[in-house]
């Protein structure tokens, strides 16, 4: 059994870059780069099946400034191997182009059973990639999964739904996107995993290796055209208390609320 997990590397929320600046890659260092939390949920989904069924798990990273770092962490969590796809001819801000890259990557990998992804591509706030990928592959899919159970015919999957949770059954070959649920809570890297990751050879593929060019997956190919990108100017400043002993912080807050005539309590 083979599972492919597509992961994304993002700039950590610990990096205090506001608004538009957050997307300016020249402002971040390698230390600021982490695996998208949503991608970690996907890794956990695959690794649970590895533990349970002995699946082989390959992590693939297309999005990120230093995909190699993210992939080593994925191996340290327990993935069997990893593939880096990096090419400036790939425009990763359009989920449709990204889906095209994923399809070709799966083609080059060959046989696979399941594809796991995180529900959200954090860097673009996109939720579309799972849906687009499964549609392009023509494979059954369950998005926003929160729990998964192996059954005879494939998997029983519970997914997020307004007002509750929906349970469906899907065949054993397909695409699953994973939510931030208890079931998909990511494991930590292990000492042994870290050592394996250090030694791991991670192949690097380019667009050309996948038979793709910038006219197919580059910025010139996108149908999603940015008209403008700007900071949202807030009318009111927020009052965030960072300094002081806990007691002082609370007093500070209560005093400010009083000054602003905000009444706490009925």
């Amino acid at each position: 059994m083979k599972i492919i997990v597509f992961i994304e590397q993002i700039v950590s929320t610990q990096v205090k870059l506001q608004g538009v600046d957050y997307f300016d890659s020249t402002r971040v260092s390698e230390d600021d780069l982490v695996i998208n939390p949503s991608s970690k949920n996907a890794l956990e989904g695959a690794l649970k099946l590895k533990d349970q069924l002995g699946a082989e798990v390959t992590a693939v990273c297309v999005r990120g400034l230093k995909p190699n770092k993210a992939l080593r962490e994925a191996i340290a969590m327990g993935c069997t191997d990893a593939i880096e796809i990096a090419d400036e001819n790939i425009y990763t801000d359009d989920p449709l182009l990204l889906a095209k890259v994923y399809v070709e990557a799966l083609g080059k990998i060959g046989e696979f059973d399941l594809v796991f992804l995180g529900v959200e591509e954090q860097s673009t706030g996109s939720y579309a990639i799972g849906a687009m990928l499964s549609e392009k592959l023509g494979l059954p899919s369950v998005l926003y999964a929160e729990e998964l159970e192996v059954i005879d015919s494939g998997y029983k999957v519970g997914h997020v739904l307004e007002g509750g949770r929906k349970i469906v059954a899907m065949p054993s070959k397909g695409v699953i996107s994973c939510s931030d649920s208890q079931y998909f809570t990511p494991r930590y890297t292990s000492m042994r995993g870290i050592l394996t990751a250090k030694r791991a050879e991670i192949p690097k593929w380019t667009a050309a290796d996948l038979g793709l060019s910038s006219s197919v997956v580059g910025k010139e190919a996108t149908s999603l055209i940015e008209v403008s990108f700007s900071n949202i100017v807030l009318e009111k400043e927020s009052y965030i208390i960072k300094e002081g002993e806990p007691e002082e912080k609370v007093e500070n807050l209560l005093a400010k609320l009083k000054e602003d005539e905000v009444k706490l309590g009925a």
């Binding site: 849906a131 687009m132 997020v160 996108t222």
Partner: peptide, 19 residues
């Protein structure tokens, strides 16, 4: 919604565009 976010990107794929 969960359903809306599931449906729209799929339709877009069939029309060869993003969403």
């Amino acid at each position: 919604t969960v359903y809306g976010e599931d449906l729209i990107p799929r339709l877009a794929v069939h029309h060869g565009v993003s969403c």
